[in-house]
C-alpha cells in the first residue's frame, strides 16, 4: 500500500518536474516577441516568405529559423524595421523577391477556362468564380501578391497598374 502510494507520487513528481523543465527551456517570453515582430509585417498573408502567413513567419524569425529579408510586400523598409527591433544584422542582402505594390491581378476573361485553380491560391479570397464559370478579380481586395499567376494553366492572369 505504502509502496504503491510512493511509486505513484514519485512518478507524478518526476513527470511534473520533467515537463516543467521542458516548458521552461523554450523561453516563456516567446509570445510577446512574436506579437512585436508580427506587428511589423504587412499582414496580407501572401505566403511569399515560404511560411503559411505573417504570424508563422514571425514565429520563425523569433526562433532564428528564418532570415529577416523574406517579405517582398514589406520590402526593404520592413527588413530594416525588423533588424532594428531585434537588434540583428541584415548586412547588405537585399529583400528577396520582387513586389510591385501598385499592381493588381486581372483575368483575361475571354481566355479563362473556368478551372477554379486560382481560387485556392489567392490568400485574400479576391477571386470570384466557380468551376466551369468565368472568374474575375475584385480589384479592391487584390494585394498584388502574384500567387495566382503560377496556378493558372492558360496564363490568362496578368498584373496591371491599379
Amino acid at each position: 500500500m505504502l509502496a504503491g502510494l510512493l511509486v505513484l507520487v514519485g512518478l507524478s513528481a518526476v513527470l511534473g518536474v520533467l515537463l516543467t523543465l521542458l516548458a521552461r527551456r523554450g523561453g516563456a517570453g516567446d509570445d510577446q516577441d512574436v506579437d512585436a515582430v508580427c506587428a511589423l509585417l504587412p499582414q496580407i498573408q501572401c505566403a511569399q516568405c515560404g511560411y503559411p502567413g505573417c504570424r508563422p513567419y514571425a514565429e520563425a524569425i523569433v526562433r532564428e529559423l528564418a532570415p529577416l529579408n523574406l517579405c517582398p510586400p514589406g520590402g526593404e523598409q520592413t527588413t530594416q524595421a525588423l533588424a532594428r527591433l531585434l537588434d540583428r544584422e541584415v548586412g547588405a542582402t537585399p529583400t528577396q523577391g520582387t513586389f510591385r505594390p501598385g499592381t493588381v491581378a486581372r483575368i483575361d476573361e475571354a481566355a479563362c477556362i473556368g478551372c477554379a485553380r486560382c481560387l485556392p491560391a489567392c490568400p485574400v479570397d479576391a477571386i470570384v468564380g466557380a468551376p466551369r464559370f468565368m472568374h474575375t478579380v475584385i480589384a479592391a481586395e487584390c494585394t498584388g501578391c502574384q500567387l495566382c499567376l503560377p496556378a493558372c494553366p492558360v496564363d490568362c492572369i496578368s498584373m496591371e497598374a491599379q
Binding site: A3, G4, V7, L8, L11, S12, L15
Partner: peptide, 14 residues
C-alpha cells in the same frame, strides 16, 4: 515491487 494493480493508473500517467 509487486504492484501489478497500479498498472493502468501508472500507464495512463506515463
Amino acid at each position: 515491487l509487486d504492484l501489478g494493480y497500479l498498472r493502468i493508473l501508472g500507464f495512463i500517467l506515463v
